[in-house]
């Protein structure tokens, strides 16, 4: 195992932010960590990178205990923080060189690695420019270059594609795949399910400080393959309507938002007819009806009871 967390606990005053979390990441994986805001993802990352102290449990990285060999372990980790962390008064080349220097790189090796990192993220032609002249996407890419200059074995990417254009996002996702092909193990967190689904070989879903499910994308989808999500747009939603629907056999959950009703139910062809009957009996009209196939989003919804965008 490249990274092993065992019964990890982090408390802030009386709140448990990370609650007996155990997780294993194998070498060569792109591991996706999914969870709403406040799920404890960033706190977990902070503990892995040594920014937060561990209250209970242990973390082993590269087979070594983080509490004992922290300095050596840190040499093999590269963090791409959620917020852009660059020096405004240093140009792109100097920013990357600074972070390379922190990991002991110097002389020709440093120059070569800086050049390579900037080329990798497509900024080699902008190396003399200062970050304030960069677009959001370019800053994100420079943020990545600073994290990979020392060629870490483990790269932790905390929401690296937030607020950027599709072109830069694609570039970053391609970069993640390329880094993985070159031998780096990647821990990737994102709000974008499709990103996680597209690039991660293994996924863990985190909520309220705990891992509530983990596996490959297919394994997670199989967990709820006997269920389906029915989305209805109705003219006049009432409390009694949702209560009646919830009473139907096979309905797991039913909640409303505006004119929309979202129903999570066991697969049953007769159920849609029964739901339509309840709605028409209550004098409302169905404007649209959609039965969703299983996606990572529906897995997340099933397990946490909320969508990621709601959680944002």
């Amino acid at each position: 195992m490249l990274l092993e967390m065992d019964q990890l606990v982090k408390r802030y005053h009386h709140d448990i932010v990370v609650d007996h979390l155990s997780l294993k990441i194998r070498e060569g994986e792109i591991f996706g960590l999914l969870g709403p805001n406040g799920a404890g993802k960033t706190t977990t990352i902070n503990m892995i990178t040594g920014l937060s102290k561990i209250d209970q449990g242990s973390i082993k990285i590269f087979g070594q205990d983080l509490g004992i060999n922290g300095k050596r372990i840190k040499e093999g980790i590269g963090l791409v923080p959620q917020e852009i962390a660059l020096f405004d008064d240093l140009n792109a080349w100097e920013n990357v060189a600074f972070f390379g220097g922190l990991y002991g790189l110097k002389g020709d090796l440093l120059k070569e690695r800086v050049q390579r990192s900037l080329k990798f993220v497509g900024l080699d032609e902008h190396q003399k420019k200062f970050p304030k002249k960069f677009s959001g996407g370019m800053k994100r890419r420079l943020n990545i270059a600073c994290a990979i200059v020392h060629q870490p074995k483990l790269i932790i990417m905390d929401e690296p594609t937030v607020g950027i254009d599709p072109q830069s996002r694609n570039h970053i996702l391609e970069s993640v795949r390329a880094l993985n092909r070159e031998g780096s193990t990647i821990l990737y967190t994102s709000h974008y399910m499709e990103e996680i689904d597209a690039i991660c070989s293994k996924i863990a879903i985190m909520d309220q400080g705990r891992i509530i499910a983990q596996g490959t994308s297919d394994e997670l989808k199989k967990m709820i393959s006997s269920e389906e999500r029915i989305l209805l747009t109705v003219s006049d939603i009432s409390y009694s309507m949702t209560e009646e629907i919830k009473k139907l056999k096979g309905v797991i959950d039913c909640h409303t938002k505006g004119q929309e009703i979202t129903i999570l139910a066991k697969k049953d062809s007769a159920l849609i007819g029964q739901i339509s009957l309840i709605i028409s009996n209550l004098g409302a009209e169905i404007h649209s009806l959609q039965v969703d196939k299983v996606t990572l989003e529906s897995v997340f919804l099933t397990l946490t009871g909320k969508t990621l965008r709601d959680a944002e």
């Binding site: 040594g50 300095k71 840190k74 040499e75 923080p81 917020e83 962390a85 660059l86 020096f87 972070f99």
Partner: peptide, 18 residues
């Protein structure tokens, strides 16, 4: 304070430098 505000201070803390 600039290092703290532009988050580079926290990034430095994740490096082996104490």
């Amino acid at each position: 304070l600039k290092d703290r505000e532009n988050r580079t201070f926290y990034r430095i803390q994740t490096s082996p430098l104490p």
